[in-house]
Every structure is written in structure tokens, then in C-alpha cells.
Design a protein around this nucleic acid. Structure first.
Length: 567
RNA sequence: GGGGUUGUAGCUCAACUGGACAGAGCGACGGUUUCCUAAACCGUAGGUUCCGGGUUCGAUUCCCGGCAGCCCCA
């Protein structure tokens, strides 16, 4: 039984007949107060018209009867400070180690959720602005799966719209045969820029040509359709190269085009229930009484916009999957848009929980990232730089000239794991809502609170276990010294950290937990001998190390970060 | 003009949803490799949590009013 349950039971025993479901024990803010604290006696005192210290004292009396509790004290205005027994900690560690999920509760069992993230535009290269949605979404994806949810990861590609008219025209007339043969996203991007520039330069003929290609595409012309399909396939192929480096993968790539034909139906339904009304030629939904302004669902030229396509998309997903909720990971600028269409969806009878997870803007050199600003750093450029920097350290640690001038395959692979881990961790370790001004040094930090710090801790624990000739937990745990105790108590918090990260939609909560855990381990490692201690202590400490390794590895895998066995 | 969001150490960020003396990393200064990987560990310095009110036994956290940055809408 976990401690919160025990404390709750003590409240129940002391004051029968009340609802104590909110009562919980949390790790003590300061170890000198004990291992755990409970502040809930203070909340009860007023409604019960009792002195808070007396409430706490009565609960303490009941609690002290429990053999898991070594000491319980009432402090300050009515805090309960609880010290648990070493035996209890050991038995809890045993439960954690014995469970394949490390006691992470399977609260999502039988529940389906859709997570919509990354969503780059087709035919354009990914850049550092795409990291956040991809990495945060990817982490949430893995965290929810760890909690037992059946997750459908969907990539809502920008794969439809006027840019394809421009692209097709450019492809037909501006590219060389060779470029057409070996088509890449970089070529497509260049092709788009050239063609768009020409259309803009008052070249009416060119512009009309682009428009004509678009119309043909929309009307299902076979040639244009095939070309479009090819652009999309090439784009996805290249995106997947990035995704594999970032540790994410998608179940579906349903871009805007997938929902295109459903939009008239959505508009029709909006009109049927009189939600949408004509205004200056456009069709709009007025949400002013909710302070959400006005959402346009069909423009005056007959075109649709994102509100309509998002409504079509949600209808489609609900019909196909009946998910418990749908999570959208996009930048914070879109908050109003999401509030608007969430509200409309609810009015159309959608009962699925819709969640927008907004993240802060990424800028570079103080400016929003854009081609126009010329501050666009391509994602593959960042990732190769990450590998380059970690490779330099990896090879220098090898010590030989040979290793640094001619790195082995193995070292390169290691440098990739470290470099990508550094990039991912630097984003995931912050609250998503924080704005980030990109800098190479921040994105590629290799020491302190960084991905490599965590990977290093893992490599060390792994090496320790190898030397000891053990592969995992064997036999009982035992915690004696304070460095063991601190680490042990921290390890017990792992399931809670995963749950909190999911509830708040913040992978940063898990990242922060793992960093703190690794810090406690590093300190333990430095100051507490393992291999050289006597047989009994050695086995117990090795168990603690093994469990730390499992927690770290599972936690990092939730963040999409690899844990090499050796660094 | 309306709305959202952020404001915490020199810099980058935490603070488990209202708890005890606000914690880390980087940077600075000092120390630790005959000992399980020094990408590490230990220590020192550094704070009016933007400002002013309010609620509360208790506020970085909640409420009201300002100020500043970023963003969205018109």
C-alpha cells in the first residue's frame, strides 16, 4: 500500500465518515523534516472547527501504529512529518523492480487517444522551428503509451493548397531533367521559391499558369495528381529520416488533403443548426458572447480555412476511432484558433475531449524564424552539428590520434545518440510554454543539466554492473545510509512523475525528475562504495544501482532519448 | 482598443498545483582523480520571486490594479 493510502486511512480512522480522497503524502520539502509530509490536516481544521494541530495529532496517533511508519511528528501550524521505515522502502523498491512497467499505473488501459503533432509543410525542408512540436509531441506520445493508452500518432501534414499549383508549374518548366529525376525536398523548395517569385513579379501569365495547374490538381487531373503524390512521398521519406533521429514515428500521415472533400459537409451542418451565418459574402460563426470573436468557416471566394478543416478532421477521427481525447501540439500563437473551433465542435455535439498543448515560440537571434529573416537553420544541419560536437568529445576521450582522425562506426553511432539526445533534452527540459531563443550552445549543451549528463549516469551504472557481473535486481533491497535512502525514495517517485507529466502535458516534469534522480545517483556513486563493500551491502547497493538504471532508461525512453551502455 | 502568455540569482530555467529557510545548471571563485568512467563529485559567493494592494495560519503560486516583453484578434 502506498503512503498516501496509509495516511488517508489514518484520517479515516481518526475522523470516520468524511471524504478524504484529496489527502496525500508528498516527498518532504526538506529531508530534515522526514521522508514525507502531509499538509492536509490544515485544510480540514476549519470546516471541522478544530485546531489544526489537534487534527494532525489525532491522525499522527493512528499513523504511528503502522509499522511502515518509523516516526511521525506534528510540526509548525499542523504539518505531519513522516519518516518511513527502511523495511518499507525496501519492500516498495522490490515492487517497483518486479513490475515490468516500474509501477507506472496503467490508467490508460482500454482508452484510445489521438495525438496530432509535428505537421510540417510538404515540399519544404524541416528547420529548427519544427523541433518543438515534434519532440514535445513525440514525448507525450511515448508517455501516454507508457501509461497504457492506445495512442494514434497522426501527422497532419500541410499537403494541400495553392502552393502546389506554383510547385507543379515550377517543376514542369524550371527544373532540369536531372533535377526531376533525382527529386529531393531541397530541390522542391528551391523550385517553389523560384516559381513563387516569378508569379509575384507581376508575371500575369506565369501566375495564371500556376492557378491553372492548381485547378487541374483539384479537379483530379491524373498527371498533376501523380506529381502531387510524388512530392508528398518524397517529403514524407525525408521527414522520416529526421523522425528516426528524433525518436518519433507516426501511425498515420493524414494531411489537409485527406479532409478536403469533407469540408462542404461540415459547412452544411453548421448552416443547418444555424451556427454559421452570412457576413460580407463569407460564412462565419459568431463567438463573441464567449469572447472568442468571429470564426470564418468559408471565405467570400468560396475557399475554406483551418477552422473548417479542423472540424472536418475531428469529425473524421471521432467517427473512425471513438477516442477518449485528441491532443494537438502546436505553437501558442494558435490558441485563439483552437479555442474557437473547440467551441464550435462542442456546439456540433462533439463530446470527445479536445486538448490544445501550446508551446512557446522559437526565435533565432531575437527574430521569428523565417526565410525572409534569413535566420533559418535547417534541422539536419543542427543534427549534424550535434553529432560533430559530441564526436569531438567521444574521440578525444579515446585518447589516441587514430580515434579522432578516423572515428570508428561505433563512435559515430555513439556520437549520434549523444548529439540527438542533447538536442531533444534541451527542448524537453523546459516547460513547453516558454519561448526559446535558439542558440547552438544551448541546444547542444553537453554538460550540467543536459541529455549527456543523464546518458553518462546510465553508462556509469551499466559499467558498474558489468564489473560486478550482475544484470539486474536479485534478492531483497536494503537501505541504510542517507545517500542510499535519498536515492531510494527518489526512485519510488518515478510512477508519480510519469503521471504528473501526462496530466500536465509537460514532458519537462519527467525530464526534471530524471535529472534530479541522476544527480542523487551521481552523488551516491561518488561517495558510496559499491564493489568494495562487504558482500551483503554490495548486493543491496547493486540492486539500488540496477533499479536506478531501469528507471533512468525507461524515463529517457519516454522522452525519446537513447541510453548507450557505454560512453 | 480587446484577448492570451511570460516576468524568479549575472545568464538559462525549476519549484510536485497554497506549505516550512525559493532550488538547479551555466558562468565566477576554491577543492577532489594510487579508489566502481572527472561529460563527474564537494564547497563558497550570488534573491525586495517586476511593482502596489487583497484573501489566508501561510502567496513565486489564487484575486484586483498597474508596468514591461512576446504573441493573437480588430
Amino acid at each position: 500500500m502506498d503512503l498516501s493510502t496509509k495516511v488517508r486511512a489514518a484520517f479515516e480512522a481518526a475522523f470516520p465518515g468524511n471524504d478524504f480522497s484529496f489527502v496525500r503524502a508528498v516527498p518532504a520539502t526538506d529531508r530534515k523534516f522526514g521522508d514525507y509530509q502531509c499538509n492536509d490536516a490544515l485544510k480540514l481544521a476549519k470546516p471541522m472547527r478544530l485546531n489544526p494541530r489537534e487534527v494532525a495529532a489525532k491522525v499522527a496517533e493512528k499513523l504511528s501504529a503502522d509499522e511502515a511508519v518509523a516516526k511521525v511528528e506534528v510540526a509548525g501550524p499542523g504539518f505531519l512529518n513522516i519518516t518511513v521505515s527502511g523495511a518499507w522502502i525496501s519492500s516498495r523498491l522490490g515492487l517497483l523492480a518486479a513490475d515490468g512497467n516500474l509501477s507506472v499505473p496503467q490508467i490508460g488501459k482500454g482508452k484510445k487517444i489521438v495525438i496530432d503533432y509535428s505537421s510540417p509543410n510538404a515540399a519544404k525542408q524541416m528547420h529548427i522551428g519544427h523541433i518543438r512540436s515534434t519532440v514535445i509531441g513525440g514525448a507525450l506520445d511515448r508517455i501516454f503509451r507508457t501509461l497504457g493508452y492506445d495512442v494514434i500518432a497522426d501527422n497532419h501534414l500541410g499537403d494541400w493548397g495553392t502552393q502546389f499549383g506554383i510547385l507543379i508549374k515550377g517543376y514542369r518548366e524550371l527544373l532540369t531533367d536531372e533535377e526531376r529525376e533525382n527529386l529531393t525536398v531541397a530541390t522542391l523548395e528551391k523550385c517553389y521559391v523560384l516559381s513563387a517569385a516569378r508569379a509575384k513579379e507581376e508575371d500575369g501569365v506565369w501566375r495564371e499558369g500556376c492557378k491553372a495547374e492548381l485547378v487541374k490538381l483539384q479537379q483530379g487531373d491524373e498527371g498533376n495528381r501523380a506529381l502531387w503524390k510524388r512530392f508528398i512521398d518524397i517529403s514524407i521519406g525525408e521527414f522520416e529520416r529526421m523522425y528516426s533521429k528524433l525518436g518519433v514515428s507516426f501511425d498515420t500521415y493524414r494531411g489537409e488533403s485527406y479532409y478536403n472533400d469533407m469540408m462542404p459537409g461540415v459547412v452544411k451542418r453548421l448552416q443547418e443548426v444555424s451556427l454559421a451565418v452570412e457576413s460580407e459574402g463569407a460564412l462565419v460563426v459568431n463567438l463573441e458572447n464567449e469572447n472568442l470573436g468571429v470564426a470564418i468557416v468559408r471565405k467570400s471566394d468560396g475557399g475554406y480555412n483551418y477552422t473548417t478543416s479542423d472540424l472536418a478532421c475531428v469529425e473524421s477521427r471521432v467517427k473512425e476511432y471513438q477516442p477518449e481525447r485528441i491532443i494537438y501540439v502546436t505553437d501558442a500563437r494558435q490558441q485563439l484558433h483552437f479555442k474557437q473551433w473547440f467551441s464550435i465542435a462542442a456546439k456540433l455535439g462533439c463530446t470527445t475531449k479536445l486538448v490544445h498543448v501550446p508551446f512557446g515560440l522559437m526565435s533565432f537571434q531575437g527574430k521569428a524564424i523565417s526565410t525572409r529573416e534569413g535566420n533559418l537553420v535547417r534541422l539536419d544541419e543542427l543534427l549534424s552539428e550535434a553529432v560533430k560536437r559530441s564526436l569531438a568529445i567521444v574521440t578525444s576521450r579515446r585518447g589516441s590520434e587514430e580515434a579522432s582522425s578516423n572515428p570508428s562506426e561505433e563512435d559515430i553511432r555513439l556520437a549520434e545518440q549523444i548529439g540527438y539526445g542533447a538536442v531533444k533534452y534541451s527542448d524537453l527540459s523546459h516547460d513547453p510554454i516558454t519561448d526559446i531563443d535558439f542558440s547552438w550552445d544551448k541546444a547542444l549543451a553537453l554538460d550540467g543539466n543536459s541529455g549527456p549528463y543523464l546518458q553518462y549516469a546510465y553508462a556509469r551504472v551499466n559499467s558498474l554492473m558489468e564489473k560486478a557481473g550482475v544484470s539486474g535486481v536479485e534478492g531483497a533491497f536494503s537501505v541504510e545510509e542517507s545517500s542510499e535512502r535519498s536515492l531510494a525514495l527518489q526512485l519510488l517517485e518515478f510512477p508519480g512523475a510519469v503521471v504528473r507529466a501526462a496530466e500536465a502535458y509537460k514532458p519537462s516534469i519527467l525530464a526534471d525528475y530524471l535529472f534530479q534522480t541522476a544527480q542523487l545517483y551521481s552523488s551516491f556513486y561518488q561517495n558510496t562504495p559499491v564493489l568494495k563493500s562487504d558482500e551483503e551491502t554490495r548486493r543491496a547497493r547493486l540492486n539500488l544501482c540496477a533499479l536506478f538504471g531501469s528507471v533512468l532508461s525507461k524515463g529517457l525512453s519516454c522522452l525519446g532519448i537513447e541510453t548507450p551502455k557505454r560512453i
